[in-house]
Design a protein around this nucleic acid. Structure first.
Lengths: 214, 214
DNA sequence: GGATTTCTCTAATCTTGGTTAGAAACTCCG
DNA sequence: CGGAGTTTCTAACCAAGATTAGAGAAATCC
């Protein structure tokens, strides 16, 4: 039973290093379950028994893969921040080279919203609980979030330098407001009330008109 | 300032109905303490012992005024939503009659932000924990929030009808995004990094340019 | 000033839920 | 088949923290 870094106890994939050993699958299943419960019930409301139930296992089995509840939570939080960043980065990387800075900004808005609302419980869990888990659990995830912040900062700076964002705009504040608007969406969005396409379009409009040069 | 309805156990202010009986003051002190701790530590991290300490009392004393932890929390949440709404309403009411619809919108942004960031732990507690307290505690506060939503909806509708907001804008979505942006501010704003005035100005710009007609 | 009521304290109780122990079950070769 | 290693289960264990009991201050009223 070896530990690497601040990481959870993880069973050594001794003999098996196949595609995804059964053990690794179970670990993943538990992590997924934790993300789901965490995204729905929040840190306070997340019990190991619930996570176990979703994962189709008994609570103590979790300890075979994670050394404590907090370690499990921390990993979900980190994954959430990490995955969103990766997704947005990859989406941007796939854009044609001649895309304008504003194009890139709008695509980032699209990617962020769709990913957090449709794809990933990890993202939702990470967003909703960032400010609610105990301090010590925020360290690693915070590093990821810092990277993500930088990504957005760069997008805005580039757009402003290209003259596609008003020169007098305080892009740092605007960026934080925008991220807040997008993060808070998880608290209210209901697919039955409002389509994701509409939501994305409105959010993009908020950037295009709110920050862009007329 | 007493409330009726599904309220907590409250000592009957039998003989004393002075300005603010000592008893009433203590109750208030506990409520204030709860708002402060709740706004800082969140629902999960709020212990009655902490609240008691801030209020300068022992934990069991809380039970003389509130029948349970959850009842205490619920009252803070309700107060938070209620006070913000009242403050914004009063601020708007004080505007001259010839104010434009956009003026009113921008003033509302100003009032909301300043109140939540400077004035009231109740507001902060209410915002940060809205999605994290158990379902049953959300009922009463939710009613207040619905009223607040309506206030904003009316502001936007008026502005759009007056032609001061783009006719093609989905004001409902925009409103929710804006409220999200403003609510999320409690998660990141630091007065030492960024002045409140700058923040307010940027948020107002987000509305003026993002929603307003050019 | 004493009696009654109001308020707050210390000490004890109870529940919830994370965590640990240690016994089964299961897997994977040989 | 049989045994070593891996995985998961049941049955405790334990700590934290909400809540209750009941005694003792403090205020209030006649």
């Amino acid at each position: 039973m070896d530990v690497t870094g601040t990481e959870a106890a993880r069973p050594a994939p001794k003999s098996a290093s196949k595609s995804a050993s059964k053990s690794e699958q179970t670990r993943q299943r538990i992590l997924d379950a934790a993300a789901e419960v965490l995204s729905r019930k929040g840190y306070a409301g997340t019990r190991l028994a619930d996570v176990a139930a979703v994962a189709g296992v008994q609570a103590p089995a979790i300890y075979y893969y994670f050394s404590s509840r907090d370690v499990l939570v921390e990993e979900v939080m980190w994954e959430g921040a990490h995955r969103v960043r990766l997704h947005v980065e990859e989406t941007l990387a796939a854009l044609p080279d001649d895309s304008t800075a504003m194009d890139r900004l709008l695509v980032a808005v699209d990617a962020h919203l769709r990913y957090e609302l449709q794809v990933s419980d990890y993202a939702t869990a990470s967003i909703r609980n960032a400010g609610h888990v105990p301090e010590q659990l925020r360290v690693r995830p915070a590093a990821e979030e810092a990277l993500y912040s930088r990504l957005w900062r760069d997008l805005f700076v580039a757009a402003q330098q290209a003259g596609e964002v008003r020169a007098d705009l305080d892009v740092n504040t605007f960026r934080l407001l925008l991220l807040g608007a997008m993060n808070w969406v998880v608290e209210w969005w209901n697919p039955r009330t409002r389509s994701l396409d509409e939501l994305v379009a409105t959010a993009q409009g908020m950037v295009r008109h709110g920050a862009g040069t007329a």
